[in-house]
């Protein structure tokens, strides 16, 4: 799906990419330091869902876990670092 704006081409929207080590279903069980494609975000809180979206955390985008600190994870989304708790990590499906 190509879009053109002001004559510039945009990168194609990639679909159906495989994630490394197919076993991980959500971020809390993902490998460190490996970019994953997000396949879905399932929070019970719609506001949180929208918030994550505005940070660039939604289906089709990349996320990487940089550190696992007990009940919290440090993730990288769109060049920014965030710390999230386990509940939220389990809600981000990869």
């Amino acid at each position: 799906m190509d879009q053109a704006f002001q004559g510039k081409r945009v990168i194609k929207y990639r679909q159906g990419r495989e994630n490394p080590v197919g076993k991980a279903t959500h971020l809390a069980s993902a490998q460190l330091n490996t970019p994953y494609w997000i396949t879905g975000v399932q929070t019970e809180d719609e506001d949180m869902q929208d918030f994550l979206f505005s940070l660039g955390c939604y289906e089709g985008q990349t996320v990487t876990i940089l550190s696992a600190l007990g009940e919290n994870f440090v993730i990288s989304v769109k060049d920014a670092r965030y710390s999230i708790d386990r509940d939220l990590a389990e809600a981000i499906l990869v």
């Binding site: 879009q3 704006f5 945009v10 990168i11 929207y13 330091n33 939604y58 990349t62 670092r81």
Partner: peptide, 23 residues
């Protein structure tokens, strides 16, 4: 908004060069 992000990504690919990726 998804398209908006894609558009932004396109710009960035043109405009920014990184030595170290944030990932």
């Amino acid at each position: 908004d998804k398209k908006r992000y894609e558009w932004v990504q396109g710009i960035i690919a043109e405009v920014e060069r990184r030595k170290v990726t944030a990932n």
